[in-house]
Amino acid sequence: MFFKTLLCDLLNIEYPLIQGAMAWIAGGNLAAAVSQAGGLGVIGASGAEPAWIKQEIEQVRKLTGKPFGVNLMLAAPGIEKVIELIIQEKVPVVTTGGGNPGPYMERLKAAGIKVIPVVASVALARRLSRLGADAVIAEGTESGGHVGEMTTMCLVPMVVDAVDVPVIAAGGIADGRGFMAALALGAQGVQMGTRFICAEECNVHPAYQQRVIKAKDRDTVICGQSTGHPVRAIRNQFTREYLKSEKMGAGQEELERLGQGRYPAAAVEGRIDEGSVLAGQICGLVNQVQPAAGIVADIISDACQVKNILGGIECQE
C-alpha cells in the first residue's frame, strides 16, 4: 500500500495523514503508533509542563525512529520554556494552535523544525506562509475543541488558492471518503483528531471513547460563543448548563469558572456527564476503538478505493 502527496516529501512520512493533537490525551504512545504506521503522530502539549512533554518525546523516540510532531498551544502560560525544550530536543515538526506563531517562527525554523500552524482564515494562512510556515492546517468549524467559523468545505479551497505551501485539511474528516474529498479540494494531506480519540493507544478514559462512539450526527454543540473562544463538545449535562448560563447573559468570569477543569474531568476521570467531551461533528462516523495502526491502514486503503470509484465516473472535458 502506498499513498503519496507533496506533504509526504515535506515531512518525510509515508502517508499524508496527521493525527490531531488532542490536549492531555494525545501522548507519546499514540504519536509513536501513528508515526510507526506511516502517518505523523503528534503529542498534544497544550498547556502541559515541559517535564511531561519531555517525557512523552522520549517515549515516542523509544517506540519509533520515524518523524513525529508536538502541538503547541501558543496562548498557554510558560510557552517560552516549551519552545526552548522543543528546540533542544530537535522535534521534527511543530503544529501550533491558540494564537499566532509568528513571534516564534524564526527560532523554530532556525533549529530546522518544520512549523505547521492551524489556521481558520485565509488572511492568517497568507500571513503565516509569508513568515515561513512550511505548511498550514486549514481547520473547519466541524472539528472538536476550539473552533473557527468557516467550514472545511469552504475554507480549504480558499486557503489552497491563497498560499504556495501545502495545505492540510482538518475538521470533519474521519474516513477515506473525507480524506479524498479534502484532496479534491486541493489539500495535500489531512489531519484527523476525533477518530484517533478512539485509538487504543490514546491516553483517554474508556468512558470518553464510548461516548464518542455512541454519538450521532447532531450530538455536538458549540459552547462559549460569547467568550470569543468557542469550543465544540458532545452535548451533555455540562453543555446544557453552560449554554443556559450563556443564554441568560452570564459574564466572562462566570463562564470561565463554569468551564474550569471540565475537559480533564471527562478525558481523565471519565465523568462524561459533568465533564466537557470535546469531539468533532464527525464523531457520528466513529464506531469502534481500534489500534492507531488499524485506523491509519483503514483510512489509506479506503481512500484508494474511493479514488478507484471516482475514476469510474464517466466524464470528459
Binding site: G99, N100, A120, S121, A123, L124, R126, R127, G148, G228
Partner: peptide
C-alpha cells in the same frame, strides 16, 4: 474585532 479580523487588517 477578533484576532482573525486583526490579521486581516494587518495584511
Amino acid at each position: 474585532a477578533d484576532s482573525l479580523d486583526i490579521v486581516e487588517m494587518l495584511m
